[in-house]
Each structure stands twice: as C-alpha cells, then as structure tokens.
Design a protein around this nucleic acid. Structure first.
Lengths: 234, 234
DNA sequence: CCTATAAGTTTTGCATGCAGAATACAAAAC
DNA sequence: GTTTTGTATTCTGCATGCAAAACTTATAGG
C-alpha cells in the first residue's frame, strides 16, 4: 500500500524528462513559424543535430512529425526542407479552419464554462492594450491566444487539436506580412463583436462573426502572400 | 540539354523505393483499424520490428506518426500501446468530421468535376450491390471509398487529408460493431439521397443530408461502443 | 500472510556506425 | 565552349550498440 505523505510531497509535480524529439519539434516549429528558417531552407541533419545538441535519431523523428503537420517537406533520399508557403494550400487550410470555427462558435456558446469566457475576455483586453500601443508582436500573441482559447472552450479536444495544427501553417504568413492600420482597426472591431456574441452565448451570431472575421483574414493573408510570390531558400 | 528519348522511355515510371517507416505505418494502421491489434495491446519494439523485418529505428518513427494520428498512445519510457476506443473522443472526432463534411458538401457541389461525380456514382452502385448481397465487409469498403472520394472531390487537399485522418479513428469501431439490418437499410437510403443531391449539385441539400447521415452514424457508433465499454488488451 | 526491499532482467531512448543514394567536382569527348 | 562521363565527397536511411529507466522476481522483515 501507499504510505501517507505530507501534502507538500503528495502534490509535488513529477520531474518531467521531456523526450528529445518533442523538444526538437517545438524548437523547430518556432523557428519555422517565426520565419527564422525561411521556406525552402535545407535542414541538414548533422548540422542541425549539432546545433540542437542532440543526435540525428530524435531529430529525424521530429522532421517526420513536422512533415505531418505540413511545416516541413521530406524529399526521399534528399533530406528535409522547410515547406514553402503555397498560397493555394494556405487558402485551403483557411477554408478548413473556417469549417472548424463554425463548430467552435456553436459549441463554445453552448458549453464553455464562464471561467473560460472570462479568460478570453481578459485576453481580449490585453490584446486591445497592445493595439492601443501599436505593438504588433504582442497583439499577434494575444490574438492567437484568443483563437486557441476559444477552440479549447468548445470542450472538444479533437477539435482544438486539429484547429491548432492548421493554425500553425497560417501563422507563418503573419510573421512575414505587415497589417495595414485600417485592417488592424477593423480586426479589433470584429473581435469586439465576437466577444460580445460569446458573452451573450449567441451561437449563430458568433458563428457568423467568426466566418466574417476569417474571410477578412483570408483576404489579408492571401494578399500578403501575393506580394512575395515564392520565397526562395536561404 | 536533355536528349530526346523514345516515348517508351520518356514515359517510364521511376522505380519507387518506399521508406520503411511508411510501409510500417500502413501495415500497423491496417492492423489497428481492423482490430487485429486490439485497443490496449502493447507494441513491443523488438518483437514487432522482428515480425515486420525491419529495425527498431523506422518502427519507432512509425509509432510516433501513428500517435499523431491518434491510433497509438505513447507512454514515456514505457512503450507504445494501441489507443483505446474512448467513446468521448470518438464522439468528438465525429463532431469534427461533421463540420468538415459540411464544407465537403458545399465545395463538392460547386467544384467537383463530372468525372469525380461519375466515379462516386459507380462506387455507390457497387456499394448497393454489396448491400443486396448482405456482404458487410465489401459494403464497408465501398462506403468508406465513397466518403473519401467525396472529400477529394471538394478539391481541397488539406480538407481531404484532415478528414481522412479523423476517419481512421472512427473506422476502428466499425470493424467491431455489427450494423442492425434496419440501420443498414436506412443508411443505404441516405446514400441514395446524398448521391442525388450531389448529382443535382445542390450544395445546401447535400450539406443537410450529410449532416443527418453523420448524426445517424454517430448514434450507431456510440451505441456500439456502449455495449463493450472498455476493451482490454489482448 | 502481506509489505517492503533488493538484485536481475527486459525495454526504451538515444547515439553511433555503415551501406547506398545523391551531389559536386573534374576530366574527357564532342 | 558545351556536354558528357567518371570519381570523390557528402548526405540520408537504416541497423546496431549502450546507458538509463521500468518491470520482474526473489528475499527479508513485519
């Protein structure tokens, strides 16, 4: 049987020994999403493994998982490269995200606990603060956080996970494209309306607002992509 | 420059050398989906690698990718097991598939080439033939083929891929649960209506029919799961 | 009889080694 | 000068080896 422990020990979190391939995935994903590894970059196994301080084995596992996420492209016998930002594919991804957001809007209004809505509201005002300061980077962070939190608030783990993965592919564009002041202001207004609908738990209205918001975002993302048609390797 | 080649050589398909981890994934996915590796089964690396005739390295890559698909569960330092059929998770997966099917229905009616619709029609009648023969296994195969082909017909590769992956998780239940004759007949009627709507390219009707079809399927799948609450390892 | 401890075994996680494919480079032929 | 052919090098794909963690069995203590 288990001996009684002092509560301080009983609640002690175990020391998490993170698998190396997971750490590598997170590091690489960040580098790719933030554009530090530009589209088309060759990912040399030996070099990258050395830089990350791991061996090729877990790194290769990371490559394959990132390929499944669509962030990396595997060329058989010829290595891995950072996936190109293909406007067609990005457009398709956004369309799928739209379908998911419709469900998110419905479910979130029906099932989200008040605490989750309160958290989203808090994030919303943090985002508005960043907007007021014209701090684009922080704005993006809170913007992302809101959308992801909303996906979680729907109470469907599969939905949240799927949404999250698709989102990573789209986020890459954001780090390369600036936002026009008008579009930025409009986006904030859209978020105001979204928050209001969520607070009122008006599912069909939230659904419509999210759909509209995403349509605007799609236009802005694809316009940004059109400006730099194909980014070559670095 | 490239020398002109006899057309027989110019059209020669290259010899495809398939990576071992992909082959392993396909083999394992089939075994899991068809229930030959029951939920909870431990996947011993050395044993499985030996049986598949490969080394542990590509097998471990396969494990991780199957975990990303939700078919395998990785227990840190304790190996991999076949993922349990969690009714809650299956229900969530079906809900997401519903959102995707709504988009599939719309896009397929708008964009599917006639050839794709013709192919789906052909598959439909193959399925009806199997139904007439009460051949459940063949029926399932064509049923799956129709839904996947429909997803492809929408002309959105990301959509098709996402749908396909979620579908694998649900398919597992089918191989373990029989279908009542009434439900079977009803499903075939629903498919008749779906095909008609697709042929007429009536997007909103197709959307509604797919939604209804999935709702029925959800009920039947969850009912089947409720009968055998938690399947232990084999 | 049950629990706790310790040695022995198995298994995973990762690093490394090796064969074959791909690439880069150089020399020869045109 | 351009293209082709041969050679050296680099890289990937996979197998194997090794240390640490987990499981198993045996043994001592209550």
């Amino acid at each position: 049987m288990e001996t009684d422990l002092p509560s301080s020990l009983a609640t002690l979190a175990p020391i998490a020994r993170r698998p190396l391939h997971e750490a590598a995935i997170d590091r690489l994903r960040d580098l790719i999403v933030q554009g530090e590894l530009p589209p088309g970059s060759r990912l040399n196994e030996r070099v990258l493994a050395g830089r990350l301080g791991i061996s090729r084995t877990p790194l290769r596992e990371a490559f394959k998982l990132l390929a499944a996420e669509g962030l990396v492209e595997l060329l058989p016998n010829r290595g891995a490269i950072v996936a190109q930002l293909d406007p067609k594919r990005i457009g398709q991804t956004l369309a799928v995200m739209g379908a998911l957001e419709a469900l998110i809007g419905e479910l979130a209004c029906k099932q989200a606990p008040e605490t989750a809505i309160a958290e989203i509201r808090a994030l919303h005002f943090e985002m508005r603060a960043a907007h007021a300061r014209r701090d684009l980077a922080v704005y993006f962070r809170y913007n992302q956080a809101i959308h992801l939190k909303l996906a979680e608030a729907a109470g469907n783990a599969v939905l949240a996970l799927t949404y999250r993965q698709l989102n990573a592919n789209v986020r890459r564009v954001r780090y390369m494209a600036n936002l026009s002041p008008e579009r930025w202001d409009a986006a904030v207004r859209e978020h105001d309306a979204i928050l209001a609908a969520l607070g009122a738990r008006d599912g069909s209205r939230l659904k419509a607002l999210l759909s509209d918001h995403l349509a605007q975002k799609t236009a802005s993302v694809l316009a940004a992509l059109a400006e730099r048609p194909a980014m070559a390797a670095a």
